[in-house]
Amino acid sequence: MFRSLLFIPGNNPSMLQNADVFLADAIIFDLEDAISINEKNNARNLVKNYLLTSSVLPKQIILRVNSINTEWFKKDIELLKTNKINYLLIPKTDKSSLLNIEEYLSAFEKENKLVETKIIALVETARGVNDLPLFAENKRLIALLLGAEDLASDLQIKRTETGEEIFYARSKIIYAAVDHNLIAIDTPYTNINNLEGLLKDATYAANLGMKAKACIHPNQLEVVNKVFSPSEQEIKWAKEVIKISLEKPGSGAFQFQGKMIDKPILDRAEKILVKAKHFNLM
């Protein structure tokens, strides 16, 4: 379960050594876009030795590897041998790239006697968005992350503050995620100094159905965590609904605060409480 995922450039020792302190639910160590071509090996070495020897590590660790069609991909995947990586984030995922990766990973895991690595698909191309219904059922997937900057570039359009241009992609991701029990993760908000803009953007995405948001600066985490956590009122409501439902077992639908409570609403209340417990909000 995530609310916030923080990208950390793999070549930045200051960020690495504080990765466990930031309030992110998961850290994404980036070997791809944040790292220039000349520094790919340097960053990989650093992340590898950090994972192997640091006494303090984040709760959940995600590695963004380079694309499968680059010369760096295979070396990046070697980091799975550290046994510290929970998930891989695969750039420019579409149906065929995911199949290729799955094939490579299966062989790699078998050869190195590793458990099956779960994948977060970074959906950031027109093809990726179109292919969603075709690959979302892949058993390795646990989440879908929208990459709106690359998508906008693929579409040859500008990103806007209000994000109309990515409404379709957001919706596609949310529907595919819900349909296949994956976590829908929203694209980062890129203006790191504008926390009010971030709040608006994250709230909008949450209202559409996103369950988490990627961040590109630690100072964004507090806002994002708040938006994607159940509110105090929601938790209170859910507790009361569950309490009453337990007092009236088998009674089917009942009324609470003037509203009809039936199974879908009970389910929602339960999910709120599970999330609240998971993130220590009760």
Partner: peptide, 12 residues
């Protein structure tokens, strides 16, 4: 730098 950083830079 912490030791893992020194080691990594040296390896590179």
């Amino acid at each position: 730098a912490l030791d893992y950083t020194i080691k990594s830079r040296l390896l590179t």
